[in-house]
Amino acid sequence: MGEQKVKVAVVQAAPILFDKESAFRKIAGYVQEAKGNGAKLLLFPEVFIGGYPRGFSFGARVGSRTMEGREDWAKYGNSAITIPGTDTDLLGEIAREAGVYLIIGVVERDQEYSQSTLYNSIVYIGPDGKLLGKHRKLIPTGSERLLWGQGDGSTLTVIDTPFGRIGGLICWENYMPLARMAMYAKGIDILVTPTADARDTWQATLMHIACEGRCYVLSSNQFATKDSYPESLNGYAELANDPTILCRGGSAIVGPLGEYAAEPVYDTETVIYADLDMASVTASRFDFDAAGHYNRPDVFQLQVNEAKQSIVSFS
């Protein structure tokens, strides 16, 4: 049997947009705070490193783009990280010093082809500082498709820990029923959901997934204000009519029967904590197990292609 109790932390914060160093400073600070409070796992929001450019159009309209928008996007690319790379090495040092699992949403820059395509990714770091894996968002949502490429099935990552198996889906990937089923079939006990969705309906989503997967669900969102946007960015003027608070948060932790282990918090930068009883995951599956006894493989089957997709094959 593994460890039955674990304290986890979910960070609700935002760095300076397009400022990688700002993100790393916040990560280091919050890791130390969480360590002091006894947490063994920390989750940071969607694209915490690089930032979620809420409100920016990047000068894109149907049939045209502006040079100013291209310039902002280039700055965004410069704030991205490679996986692996020197930045994940630094994350490893932070995690190793604190002895915690570190799960962070990042803007990832492709290393294989043009080295310009960006991805919305999750990076997993172990308490020994080792890179354990990554996940690339399968389908960026709405206008996000101008910013990030599509991931493939090769990064449906699940990591083993002493207190259970952990996997993640990013924001609206969690509305993809087949993606959720793929994660359940991998035996996850904790689902992490870095997000940018601060709507009330997101809470219903978290509860549904927890009940459906009979797993803990950790959701981390940014609390972002206009103060985190440099006025020097070309797109800053687009925020003129937006409220001061651009993203109100709503980070939460939900247990395997759909009850809050930590209720959502809004309108503040904070860290929320919960003590997870991993034995309750097994107990919750007594009457429902989506990947086990409450399944009809003779009626429904899911095929998942986990092969890495390549655009060019060199012989």
Rank of each mutant, 00 (worst) to 15 (best):
A182L: 11
P84Y: 07
G99W: 04
E238G: 05
E93T: 14
S315E: 15
G151P: 00
R54N: 13
K308E: 15
A23M: 04
Y175V: 12
A14R: 00
L131Y: 01
E3Q: 09
E238R: 09
A240I: 13
V271F: 09
Y119S: 10
G133W: 08
K7C: 12
A262H: 01
R165A: 06
L17I: 13
A34L: 11
I125A: 04
V31H: 00
F163P: 00
I209S: 02
Y113L: 06
L257F: 08
S114D: 11
Y294T: 15
G255K: 01
A196Q: 06
P256V: 13
D87C: 10
A237M: 08
Y294Q: 14
T225Y: 01
L218G: 02
V158G: 01
R109H: 05
R180P: 03
S251V: 09
L118K: 00
Y273T: 07
P140C: 15
F24P: 00
K134L: 14
Y229M: 11
L91K: 02
F44Y: 10
L118F: 00
E68H: 12
D152I: 12
M207Q: 14
E97L: 13
D298H: 12
L132K: 00
A39C: 14
P15D: 10
Q203E: 07
V312G: 14
L257M: 14
G2I: 09
S114F: 11
L147I: 09
E93A: 14
T193L: 14
L218R: 03
V271Q: 04
G142E: 08
Q222C: 09
N37L: 15
P45T: 15
I190H: 05
N295Q: 06
P45N: 15
I139F: 05
P264A: 12
V265Q: 09
I190K: 02
K137F: 08
D287E: 13
L17G: 05
V107H: 05
Q115C: 13
A307G: 14
N295W: 03
D227E: 06
P297N: 12
M183Q: 10
V11A: 09
A240T: 09
A185E: 05
D197R: 06
L276W: 02
C215M: 08
G36N: 10
I245Q: 03
Y124L: 02
L156A: 15
M176E: 09
L206S: 04
S310I: 13
T282A: 15
V217Q: 02
W202A: 08
F300D: 05
M181G: 08
A39Y: 08
S114C: 11
S154E: 08
Q301S: 15
A23K: 00
D128T: 11
T155P: 00
S116V: 08
F300T: 06
S251M: 07
V6Q: 05
Y124C: 02
V265T: 14
I166T: 03
Y101S: 07
H293T: 01
A34D: 05
A198Q: 01
K75E: 08
R248W: 07
A196I: 10
A60V: 15
R61Q: 15
G63A: 10
E231S: 07
T270F: 09
R25S: 11
L17Q: 04
W148Y: 07
C211R: 05
T155A: 04
G55W: 00
A23W: 00
